[in-house]
Design a protein around this nucleic acid. Structure first.
Lengths: 210, 210
DNA sequence: GTGGAATTGGGCCGATCGACCCATTGAACG
DNA sequence: CGTTCAATGGGTCGATCGGCCCAATTCCAC
C-alpha cells in the first residue's frame, strides 16, 4: 500500500513497484486515510511518506502499529533527519528510506520489510551512527556549551515569563545570584539586556518557545 | 528533460512520460547540472523542481531562459506558494504545477508548454487570484492587525537590540512615546515587560529575528 | 593538590522600566 | 459634526535592571 500526499509520486511508485512484480492494493493521500485503509486492506508492507496533511507519517505509523502489528511500514522522507528517524523507529516503523534512491533500492526495501528485516537508506546509516554517538556521549556536548546549565535554566525561566524574583524563588536562590547569572550570559551572548539575551538564546536554540 | 533532486521522483516521472509517448533526453539532480545539460541537450520542454541543492529551480530557470529562450520550462513544486510562483513567472517559467496532480495533467502541461501555451495547476489559479486580490487591496490587512504599525515598528527595533532612547532616536519621537507604545503592546499581547512582548511578537510572526 | 570554573551571595549606584495619572493632534467613520 | 482611535507627549513614583566592586564554597580536571 502506498501513502503520500502527492499523487504524482504515488503513481510513479505504483508503476515502478508493479513492474517489479508487487501488487499495490491501495493508495492513501494522508495519515488518517492511511490508518483506515490499512485496517481494511491489511497489506503486507506500507510505503509511507513522513510529511502529510491531516496526520503525519510518524503518528500514522504509531496507530497502524497498534492496531495491526503484523503490517510492516517503511517510511519515506525527503531529508535524512535523525530526530524524525528516531521517532519513526520508536513508533514502530520497519524501515526508513530517503526519497533520493533508485526504484531498485525501494523494491529491495519492500522485500526486506516483508521478510521481517529492517531496511535503512545508506545515507541514514551514517545519520543513525551519529545519533547513537550523540546519545551515548553526552559529556562532549557539555564541553562546548556556551552558557552553563544554571545560566540556561535562568534563561529558560525568563523566556517563560518569570521576573527576577520569580526565577530566584523557582530555583531556590537569591535574586542577586539570578542577576549574576544573567550578567554572565550578557557577556557570553553579546547581549546588553535580558531581552537581547533571550532572543539570542532562542536563535541559538538554547531555550524553547512554548 | 527532467530536473529534480530526488531520483525516485525522476524515475517515476520518466516512466509516466515515456508511457505517454514523450522522449526524455536527460535527467539532472540540481540547478547547476540542469543549466549545463539544457544548453547541451536543447530539449523542447524541461520539467523542473523548485527546491533543489546547489541552485534552486527559480534561479536555474532564469539562467536557462537567458541562454536558450526557446526552451519551455515547467516548474514543479510541493506547495502552492504564490511568492515562488510569481518569482518563477518573472524568471521566465512557462508553467507551474503542484506535484499533487495526475500523470495526465503533467502530460497535458508538457504538451501545452511545447505549443507555447502557459500551463498552470488549477490549485494555483485560485492562488494567483488571491495574490492579485491581495496586491490590489492592501487596506484589508490593516483591519485585523492586533498591534498598530507604530507599535510594530517599536517592537521590531527592540527585537533588533535597540534601547528605549535608541528607538526614540530612530523613529524621531520622544522616549516617553516609545514607552507609551510599549505599554499599549503589553496590554494587547498580555505581556508584562519588553522581553515577553518581543517573545510573543516573535511567536506571532509580528517581528522577524535576523 | 592546586588551579580554574561554576554556583552562590553581598553591597552600591545610576539608569531604566512599567504603572498610573493626564493632554493634544489628526485622521477616519458614521 | 461628534466619536473613536492612533500617535504624540508630559509628570511622578516605586520597582527593577545592569555594571562594578567583592568573597565563599564546591567540584572537576590536570
Amino acid at each position: 500500500m502506498l501513502v503520500d500526499d502527492h499523487r504524482m509520486l504515488r503513481e510513479g511508485l505504483r508503476r515502478s513497484l508493479e513492474d517489479e512484480g508487487f501488487d499495490v492494493l491501495g493508495e492513501a493521500a494522508d495519515g488518517l486515510e492511511a490508518v483506515r485503509m490499512a485496517a481494511e486492506l491489511r497489506p503486507e508492507v506500507i510505503l509511507m511518506d513522513v510529511t502529510m496533511p491531516e496526520m503525519d507519517g510518524v503518528e500514522a505509523v504509531r496507530r497502524i502499529h497498534e492496531e495491526c502489528p503484523e503490517i510492516r511500514v517503511v517510511m519515506l522522507t525527503m531529508h535524512a533527519d535523525a530526530d524524525v528517524l528516531a521517532q519513526a523507529i520508536r513508533a514502530g516503523a520497519a524501515g526508513y528510506l530517503v526519497k533520493d534512491c533508485s526504484t531498485d533500492e525501494i523494491a529491495d526495501a519492500v522485500r526486506m520489510a516483508a521478510n521481517g528485516d529492517t531496511a535503512l537508506s545508506p545515507q541514514l546509516a551514517s545519520t543513525m551512527l551519529e545519533e547513537l554517538r550523540r546519545l551515548n556521549a553526552p559529556p562532549e556536548t557539555e564541553e562546548d556549551r556556551l552558557v552553563t546549565k544554571r545560566e540556561e535554566e535562568v534563561l529558560q525561566l525568563i523566556a517563560d515569563g518569570c521576573s527576577t524574583p520569580e526565577v530566584a524563588a523557582k530555583l531556590y536562590i537569591s535574586q542577586k545570584t539570578v542577576k549574576n547569572h544573567l550578567a554572565s550570559v550578557y557577556q557570553k551572548l553579546d547581549a546588553r539586556d535580558r531581552t537581547q539575551a533571550v532572543l539570542m538564546a532562542v536563535r541559538m536554540g538554547i531555550v524553547r518557545l512554548d
